[in-house]
Design a protein around this nucleic acid. Structure first.
Lengths: 238, 238
DNA sequence: TATAATCATTGATTAAAATCAACTTTCTAT
DNA sequence: ATAGAAAGTTGATTTTAATCAATGATTATA
């Protein structure tokens, strides 16, 4: 992990971060002044579950997985962070809080790093930014609720189909290619299924004519048909 | 569902709600003026998944379950709300948002009902209240993350033990009685296990000498021993 | 380009919990 | 107090996905 000059991140770039989008130049300049730019090589950790959470992050390049380990060492990936996304910002308002997960680079990554206290001081002055953070936190809550819904009310096959469909813009109806941004076993853990099972599900969906798998690229033959299948898959499997 | 005069809820009572604890008398008076008091009989719905979310709530009396249904009609209880707790306040900051779950009374309930817009206007003026809401939302996020952890990395037995231990104050070491506040099948759904399985797990824990079950009361013989068992239960079961 | 290491697939088997079904207990309302 | 409904328990069986094991494919690297 090495610090780098932050000269290559502009104020305009910061403004594109949703949480900062309503801030003025002076506020953004202050954030820029206090932010750091870090590089993390594949496999290395940005922070670990339980560590004191004093900063949050924006991924510029690479991929980061947010995970937890069971006592027996089993790994559950909660989220795969892609470039442009912020993470760990929800802990900002828990004084003396600790990160609820571990963050590990899946590939060499470039990260912007913000001090919670600096941003909190700015949020105090900006109702808009404040309500944007709350909006974002609401969304997170909804996301996790959906996740629990999928884990408890849906099958592994459904979860995978859902994941695939989620990547596709609404207007696409026919053919579409989805590419896994990270190795299949990471996607599997993200979906709470074992790699073997993911492999079998992909195989079955292929056999049923829904998809063609080529490495990490999934070609969906007919998006609408898969959407329809997702609605019925649990009913059918009874 | 019938409206009632709110005369029996005082300003002081409102101040005990965490989210309102830093507000001044004038702000609390305004909230009181705009709040409503509703009664909901057992089995009836307060709101349904997908409905427009314009208010949030504080349960005064009774019990409310927050649930989702699968397409096949299977019910998953996400949360059992007990008196004194607020709920659905996280949706406040999602404009045009809808409730992510259904709220149904498990027993005859008495509920305070707050208009989102009124509270938002007050939050605008109060940084403290604002940061308290954010703190609360952070906690919710952590809670759901823990929930997913339990669902994916732990067994049904572990989830039940966890639930029991969670009800017990830290200082208790030996015997302790936990009483299920709602029927066992609701607890089962809350823990994402079937009633039959819950029954079997309780039976097994009894056979192993950890607990005695009498109706909805679980007598834990030795809290420390159960805590220790929880740590090892997954390892042992391998 | 060889070689190891990681990742992915496939098959056989197992395990945890769900399902189905019957029955008992408890609660509720008359 | 009693009938009926709802909730809970217990047993037999099935299902989904995990586990175990072996092999094949990719990727990285020496």
């Amino acid at each position: 992990m090495q610090n780098q000059p932050y000269s290559d991140t502009t104020i305009d770039e910061l403004r594109q971060i949703y949480l900062f989008s309503s801030l003025n130049d002076q506020q953004l300049a202050q954030i820029k002044e206090n932010m750091r730019h870090i590089q993390i090589d594949e496999g290395n950790f940005l922070f670990k579950h339980g560590e004191h959470a004093a900063r949050f992050f924006m991924l510029k390049k690479g991929h980061i997985k947010l995970l937890r380990l069971s006592r027996e060492g089993a790994e559950k990936v909660f989220e795969v962070v892609s470039p442009g996304e912020t993470f760990a910002e929800a802990a900002m308002f828990m004084p003396q809080s600790s990160y609820p997960m571990t963050a590990q680079a899946i590939s060499d990554s470039s990260i912007l790093c913000f001090e919670n206290q600096i941003v909190i001081d700015i949020l105090k002055e900006s109702w808009d930014a404040c309500s944007q953070l709350m909006f974002q936190m609401s969304q997170r809550i909804h996301m996790w609720i959906n996740e629990i819904d999928h884990l408890t009310l849906q099958s592994a096959t459904y979860r995978l189909i859902n994941y695939l469909l989620y990547q596709i813009p609404d207007n696409h109806k026919n053919v579409y290619k989805v590419k896994f941004p990270v190795p299949k076993h990471v996607i599997a853990s993200r979906l709470s299924i074992k790699p073997e099972t993911l492999s079998r599900i992909l195989h079955t969906l292929n056999k049923e004519g829904f998809i063609t798998v080529k490495g990490s690229t999934i070609r969906i033959h007919n998006v609408d048909r898969l959407r329809l299948h997702a609605v019925g898959v649990d009913v059918v499997s009874q």
